[in-house]
C-alpha cells in the first residue's frame, strides 16, 4: 500500500487507512434492512430467502422492519395493483434516505402475466424509481440473493460527494396517485382534463 509510508512503523499493524466512501458504503451495505412488506407470490419466496435454508442473515439483512421509517430497502415483491399503488408510493415517501427499491419478479417489473388486467399497474417503476430488477415468476431465492448482491455493488460504487441525500436542495416526495374512475397522478390532472373535457362537436351549441 502506497499510503503506508506516512505511518510510523510501530503503528502500521494497528492503524488501517481507507477512504470515507469505503467505510461508509461497507457499513451501509452490510446492514441493509429490508422492509417487511409483501404483495403477492414473490413475498413467499422472499420469506423463504430470509428463512433457514437461504439465510439472508449472511448479508446482515435478517432484520426486517414493518415500519418504513426504519428501512433502507423496499423489496416490491409481487403484483402492484392500482388500489395498492398509492399505498406503496406513500410508504416510499416515508422511507428515510438513503433508500433503495428492488423490484422482485415479473409483475413488479412490468405487470407480468397480469399486465393486461384492469387493476394492474404495468410495473412499479411507473411511480417510484427502481434500483435493481430481478426477473422470474417468482424469482427463486437464489435469484433474489443475486439481485441483492447487485444492489450491494451499486452501494459500494456510490460516493458521499455525489449522493443526492447530502445535497442542499432536499428532493421532493413523489406525488401520491389518486383513485378516481381510474388511477391518476394529481399533477397530471390538467393534461387529463384536456382529454376528458374536450369540447363536444358543434351540433349542440
Amino acid at each position: 500500500m502506497a499510503n503506508d509510508q506516512h505511518i510510523p512503523e510501530e503503528l502500521q499493524r494497528n492503524v488501517f487507512m481507507t477512504t470515507v466512501d469505503f467505510l461508509y458504503n461497507w457499513s451501509r451495505k452490510n446492514s441493509m434492512w429490508p422492509m417487511l412488506f409483501g404483495l403477492a407470490c414473490c413475498a413467499i419466496e422472499m420469506i423463504c430467502t430470509a428463512a433457514g435454508r437461504y439465510d439472508l442473515a449472511r448479508f446482515g439483512m435478517e432484520v426486517m422492519r414493518p415500519s418504513p421509517r426504519q428501512c433502507d430497502l423496499m423489496i416490491v415483491s409481487g403484483t402492484v395493483t392500482k388500489k395498492m399503488a398509492p399505498t406503496i408510493v406513500r410508504l416510499y415517501n416515508q422511507m428515510a434516505e438513503p433508500r433503495y427499491v428492488l423490484s422482485m419478479g415479473a409483475c413488479a417489473t412490468g405487470g407480468g402475466p397480469f399486465k393486461e388486467g384492469y387493476n394492474v399497474v404495468s410495473g412499479i417503476d411507473k411511480y417510484i424509481p427502481v434500483d435493481v430488477y430481478v426477473p422470474g415468476c417468482p424469482p427463486t431465492p437464489e435469484a433474489l440473493l443475486y439481485g441483492i448482491l447487485k444492489l450491494h455493488e451499486k452501494v459500494e460504487n456510490q460516493s458521499v460527494k455525489t449522493v443526492p441525500w447530502y445535497r442542499k436542495e432536499t428532493p421532493k416526495g413523489i406525488a401520491v396517485p389518486e383513485l378516481g374512475p381510474d388511477i391518476f397522478q394529481p399533477d397530471r390532472a390538467e393534461e387529463i382534463a384536456m382529454f376528458t373535457l374536450r369540447p363536444i362537436p358543434a351540433e349542440e351549441s
Binding site: 374512475p181 387529463i192 382529454f195 376528458t196 373535457l197
Partner: peptide, 25 residues
C-alpha cells in the same frame, strides 16, 4: 408494446366528461 397502443401510455382510461380537478376521493 401495449403501452404504445393506448392514449396515456399506461394501463388507464378515463371516461369522457370527467373533471380530474374537481375530484373528491
Amino acid at each position: 408494446w401495449a403501452e404504445d397502443r393506448v392514449p396515456w401510455g399506461d394501463n388507464v382510461k378515463y371516461p369522457q366528461g370527467w373533471d380530474p380537478n374537481a375530484f373528491e376521493p
